[in-house]
Design a binder for these strands. Structure first.
Lengths: 241, 241
DNA sequence: GAAATAGTGTCTTTCAGACATTATGTT
DNA sequence: AACATAATGTCTGAAAGACACTATTTC
């Protein structure tokens, strides 16, 4: 049994990103059109192979996110999702990919990154229904990522990651409604979200950008977890599965 | 930009396992003593490099679990935890490891697998406190794995994964108490756990192995998620973080 | 004024937490 | 009988869901 790495089989390791936003009243994900084979011309998740040996994969993901969106990782949420390693997932050979989940607000010029590939937003529904087809096993990855993102809204302050730095309660509620595809009662949402200490910090400012009575502006507070969580309806299967 | 994998830098890919059980009234994890350098003689998580190119990493994890415990993966719970890829985590060079979390009941001869390495159970507390030191970054991995396991008990039927095929409500409650390090009210636990449809299926049998009045035996039902969840006390920080 | 949205309050039901009581076995 | 644990029931308080009402802006 060899003690060094020379005799170990090695694999190509990729990092892929599922970058979500809420844009034009829809829950959307950033896709790129592949410039090269395989799957040339098809849509896929942005990502790439790891190329430096002196970099944590979390850092690689953050760097690629910055390349793709022009945003540094400290400005938005980035977390590891899962690693996918089916041997047949890439026709070129064994490629294992570590996937990350990122949530970002709808910023003016999020796309058109440094990369030459053309990036675009696509509604997640179109992918989940199979209406839009993706390269590799990215369909499955998107499905997992959406489930993770939706679940996280229940107990974390991550909904605010889709909002600009300062936002109103209504704007935050709209994010929840769009991501979950479900209407929420404005009064109860307001009560629930403001009752969590440290979750939202009022800026003191007000805005009328949503029309009607001016709404108080908030920014994200230090608290990240909500306990107990907001639950999205009872329409989920409690029993069977 | 090359289209094949020949020019891609590759890494050695490992699979490590965090195998938990409840044994002798303690929450324990399976560790092995390393037979080779680096960290020879030190305790570490069981695992190894992927050696076949035609195998999903999930399958690799299941196979190694079987080698280590003698149990097939369909008998116990196995899920991917996270991938760790700090460049300095292995002194031999770049090794990325995909870690898995496994939960198993306290079986008669779980250890003494086919592998030559000596395996042993260790209380997780000793690792979390730093009392027991582990090789590589396995300390961090165990910490993440424990947090995942504890959290999963809140909303899933995974507590039963620590129990034998047939178990009483009290035995299941003891699992929760030991994993969470927290006393639970027997009456309330009974009410809560039996109220979830499809969670526990009564076998019709009874046992007196716990003393006192005979308790009904149950086995795991088809339902896997509990909604709403059982919460472990209010002693967590709801706000700060 | 009307229309729109923000924010507060109230009522009801559900459920967690605390705890009493009864049931059924062993010694 | 005493003892141990199982199982069911009751009470209370907190919080979710449903919804009425008031407040403050624009048009």
């Amino acid at each position: 049994m060899p003690q060094d790495l020379q005799h170990r089989p090695k694999v190509a390791l990729a990092v892929d990103l599922a970058i979500f936003t809420v844009r034009e009243d829809r829950f959307q994900i950033l896709l790129v059109e592949r410039a090269n084979q395989p799957y040339r011309g098809q849509l896929a998740l942005p990502g790439g192979f790891i190329d430096t040996d002196d970099e944590d994969i979390d850092v690689t993901a953050a760097r690629e996110l910055a390349e793709e969106t022009g945003l540094t990782a400290d400005r938005l949420h980035l977390e590891q999702l899962r690693t996918y390693g089916r041997p047949d997932r890439d026709p070129r050979g064994r490629v294992v990919t570590v996937c990350y989940l990122a949530l970002m607000p709808d910023l003016p010029i999020p796309v058109a990154g440094g990369d030459a590939r053309s990036a675009r937003w696509a509604p997640v529904d179109a992918i989940l229904t199979g209406e839009v087809h993706l390269a590799f096993d990215h369909q499955v990855i998107v499905s997992d990522a959406v489930e993770r993102a939706r679940g996280k809204l229940e107990y974390s302050s991550l909904g605010a990651a889709f909002c600009p730095a300062e936002f109103t309660i209504s704007e935050l509620r709209r994010v929840y409604e769009i991501v979950w595809g479900q209407q929420l009662d404005p009064r109860n949402f307001h009560r629930k979200i403001t009752s969590v200490a440290g979750f939202l910090v009022p800026t003191g400012e007000r805005t009328t950008r949503d029309g009607g009575r001016p709404a108080a502006l908030y920014r994200r507070g230090p608290a990240t977890v909500m306990h107990p969580p907001i639950l999205r309806g009872h329409n989920q299967n409690h029993s069977e599965r």
